[in-house]
C-alpha cells in the first residue's frame, strides 16, 4: 500500500520536472526555432521562384544575388568615402600651397558632390522620417488632447480628419511640391526644398492616426478619475498634466506607433516620386538605371526598408515601455 503511494508521488515529481522542461523547451521553440524555420522556408521558395522569373533585366534576383549586392553596395560606399576623403585632402593641400605664397589667402573648402551611396540614402531617409514624424506629433498630440477634452471641437474637426486620413501621399505630393517651391523662397535656404517636400508629405500623412488615437484616449478616460479631479478642483493645466496626459499615454503611443509606420511607408513613396534624396530615390534610380544588378539592388533595398521599419516600431515600443505606466499596453 505504502509502496504504491511512494511510487505515485515519485511519478508526480518526474511529471512535474517533465512539465517544466517542456515549458522551457516550448518557449525556446517559439522564440527561436519557429522563426528560423519560417525564414528558411521563405528563402527556399524565394530562390526557387526567382529562378523561373525572367525579366528584361535578367532573372529575378534570388537570395544569393541579393547578398552579393549587399556586399557590393558596402564596397561602393567605402570607395565613395575614400574618394571624398581624397577630395578634401586635395583641397587642403591646394589651400596650404596658396597660403604659403600669399599669407592673407583664406582657403575655401568645397563640399564633396559625389554620388550618395546606399548608406547615405538610408541616413537621409531616417533623418527625414524622424523630422516629419516629430512635426506631425507636435501638431497632432496637443490637437488630439484638445479634441478629446472638448466635445464640440471634436465634432467640428472629426469630419476633416476622417476625410484626410485615407488620402495617399502620392496625391498630396504634387500639391506640397508646388506650394513649397512657391512659398519657400530663400537665397540661403536652411534646408533643401526636396527635404521640406518629403517632410511635409510625411507629416500630412502621419498626422491623422495620432490625432484620432489621442482624442479617443483622452475622451475615454474613466469618469471616476475625472470625478477625482473635479472633487480636488484641479486647475485645467494641472488636470491635463496630472490626469489627462498619463491616463491617455497608452493610446497616444498606439497612435504614435501607427503614425511612425505610416510615415516610413509614405516617405519611401514620396522620395521615389519626387526624386528627393533617400531610399526611395535609390530604388527609383536603380529602376531607371536598368543594369543586370538593378533588381537585386532594389530587392536589397526592400529588405533594408522592411528591417528599418521593424526597428523603428521596436524603438517606439521600447520608448513606450520607458514612459508609460501601463506596461500591459506596451506589448507587441
Amino acid at each position: 500500500m505504502s509502496l504504491t503511494t511512494v511510487n505515485a508521488s515519485q511519478l508526480t515529481v518526474t511529471e512535474q520536472v517533465m512539465k517544466v522542461s517542456k515549458n522551457v523547451l516550448s518557449k525556446i521553440t517559439n522564440a527561436m526555432l519557429l522563426p528560423i524555420i519560417g525564414i528558411t522556408i521563405f528563402i527556399f521558395f524565394w530562390s526557387i521562384a526567382a529562378q523561373s522569373i525572367h525579366t528584361s533585366l535578367g532573372t529575378f534576383p534570388g537570395p544569393n544575388a541579393v547578398v552579393k549586392q549587399f556586399s557590393s553596395l558596402y564596397d561602393e560606399h567605402v570607395v565613395e568615402r575614400e574618394k571624398a576623403e581624397a577630395f578634401y585632402q586635395r583641397q587642403e593641400k591646394r589651400n596650404a600651397a596658396k597660403q604659403e605664397k600669399n599669407p592673407d589667402y583664406v582657403g575655401k573648402i568645397r563640399a564633396y558632390t559625389g554620388k550618395e551611396t546606399f548608406f547615405d540614402q538610408i541616413l537621409t531617409s531616417l533623418f527625414t522620417v524622424t523630422c516629419g514624424f516629430l512635426v506631425a506629433a507636435i501638431i497632432a498630440i496637443p490637437l488630439g488632447i484638445w479634441m478629446g477634452l472638448n466635445k464640440r471641437l471634436n465634432s467640428a474637426i472629426n469630419p476633416i480628419v476622417q476625410i484626410f486620413k485615407p488620402v495617399s501621399p502620392l496625391a498630396w505630393l504634387p500639391l506640397v511640391t508646388m506650394v513649397v517651391s512657391a512659398l519657400y523662397v530663400s537665397d540661403d535656404p536652411m534646408v533643401s526644398k526636396s527635404f521640406l517636400t518629403s517632410l511635409i508629405t510625411v507629416s500630412l500623412c502621419s498626422l491623422w492616426p495620432m490625432v484620432i488615437n489621442t482624442s479617443i484616449g483622452v475622451s475615454s478616460i474613466d469618469s471616476d478619475l475625472l470625478n477625482v479631479s473635479k472633487v480636488l478642483r484641479l486647475p485645467t493645466f494641472t488636470h491635463i498634466q496630472k490626469i489627462v496626459l498619463p491616463a491617455s499615454v497608452p493610446m497616444i503611443f498606439t497612435g504614435m506607433r501607427l503614425s511612425f509606420g505610416v510615415a516610413w511607408m509614405v516617405l519611401i513613396a514620396a522620395e521615389m516620386l519626387a526624386q528627393n534624396p533617400g531610399l526611395g530615390k535609390f530604388v527609383w534610380d536603380e529602376f531607371q538605371n536598368g543594369s543586370s544588378d538593378s533588381l537585386a539592388r532594389i530587392m536589397a533595398a526592400v529588405i533594408v526598408i522592411g528591417f528599418i521599419g521593424f526597428l523603428l516600431d521596436r524603438a517606439m515600443l521600447e520608448l513606450q515601455r520607458k514612459v508609460s505606466w501601463d506596461k500591459s499596453s506596451a506589448s507587441v
Binding site: 474613466d222 471616476d224 470625478n227 472633487v231 490626469i243 498619463p246 491616463a247 505606466w325 501601463d326
Partner: peptide, 19 residues
C-alpha cells in the same frame, strides 16, 4: 453647487490614479 475637497468622496472602485 460644485464639487470640492471639503466634501471628499470615496468612490466604489477606489479610483486611484494607476500611474
Amino acid at each position: 453647487n460644485e464639487p470640492g475637497p471639503e466634501r471628499a468622496v470615496v468612490f466604489q472602485n477606489h479610483s486611484l490614479l494607476p500611474w
